[in-house]
Design a protein around this nucleic acid. Structure first.
Lengths: 190, 190
DNA sequence: GCAATTCGGGACTGATCGGTACAAAACTAT
DNA sequence: ATAGTTTTGTACCGATCAGTCCCGAATTGC
């Protein structure tokens, strides 16, 4: 017995996620958010609490999607092929959005360190989960636990480096070469 | 025939650099800057132009010092030892400042991408110079130009990853292990 | 049609942002 | 001492920040 909401909460949240991903937390002003989400101020606060709460929601969602994608490729491919596919997301055609925004987890972990440590550490914790997935996958190759731990740590370094490269908008060809070389030497170390 | 300046420009600038390094460009407000620099608003604008100009100055200075340090270690050590030393800066004792602020070039390249692309690209260009120094150093080991180019690109990935790890405040021991493992497999690839 | 209820647009809040203006203070050259 | 010059402290500026409030509009159950 009341007026129904006029916007799609999920759609609005996804649009906010893209803006946060592209501009970062601080530079995504409330006006910017309302514009891309196409909702009014009141609806925003009613549906999402406040800017920080929405960001947390987006951050967790991004992490969840990232882990889902990673686990998907790891399930349907040999471990190293799956990892390589995961590394290759986001280096698509230049200027098509998303492809040069890096990784929201890496971006946030850096941007909010020393500014809002809770946010930074949450992003960092999500990254640790990704690394744990790397490690679990390496273990299935039959290598020693020690080697799996060491290599997954290095893979995380490489991933972070790649996501930095992506946000620096290095040419996709350059990034592809980086991945190729990196996996060649990681392969040799396995 | 005039009143002399009462502050040390170099000292004030260095203090600003530390704040930018720790908090990033956007989160370092003018009030914050004036406080740590211990100068007044008027002196600030008279001596540095504006916030952005000061930041640019700090960014370039940071890059210069980074390259100087890198070239120093490369001159007085075998190439791979010199590189390893360079990778190890900033993972000192936890909580002693600087050691978990990552790298201003990496931080800026990410933070300002899509917000102030000129700043982001300038930081990125400085990083490219660092990579060029890597490549030049590798060439002195007598490896092929192709291999030097490929490996220096991967070394840059690893460096960026390490500086992310540093800002994520991963334990120094973890970072030390990452460096050790990374150089072991890079060594094998050379 | 009407009452109940919820939604949404926009005015408003106080705080803070980066930057400017100006006058008093401080120093030097004479 | 005084005139002349520059620095410095501070009041002020408009813009924007995140967040609140309220009322008209819209939609429902009856």
């Amino acid at each position: 017995m009341a007026r129904p909401v006029e916007f799609d909460r999920t759609l609005a949240r996804d649009r906010a996620l893209l803006l946060f991903w592209r501009r970062g937390y601080q530079a995504a002003s409330l006006s910017n958010l309302l514009a891309v989400m196409e909702i009014s101020r009141s609806s925003f606060y009613a549906a999402f609490g406040d800017k920080r709460a929405l960001f947390l929601e987006c951050l967790d969602l991004f992490a969840e999607r990232t882990l889902n994608f990673l686990n998907g490729t790891l399930e349907t491919n040999p471990p190293l092929d799956g990892l390589k596919q995961f590394f290759e997301i986001g280096l698509g055609r230049m200027g098509d959005g998303e492809s040069h925004w890096g990784c929201l987890l890496v971006n946030t972990s850096l941007e909010m360190a020393g500014v809002d440590d809770a946010l930074s550490q949450r992003a960092s914790a999500h990254l640790a989960q990704v690394q744990a997935a790397f490690e679990a996958s390496l273990l299935t190759t039959g290598c020693s636990p020690q080697k799996a731990a060491d290599l997954s740590a290095v893979l995380m370094l490489l991933l972070e480096g790649l996501r930095v490269s992506s946000r620096r908008a290095l040419p996709p060809e350059t990034q592809r070469n980086q991945i190729h070389t990196a996996f060649r030497i990681v392969d040799a170390a396995l």
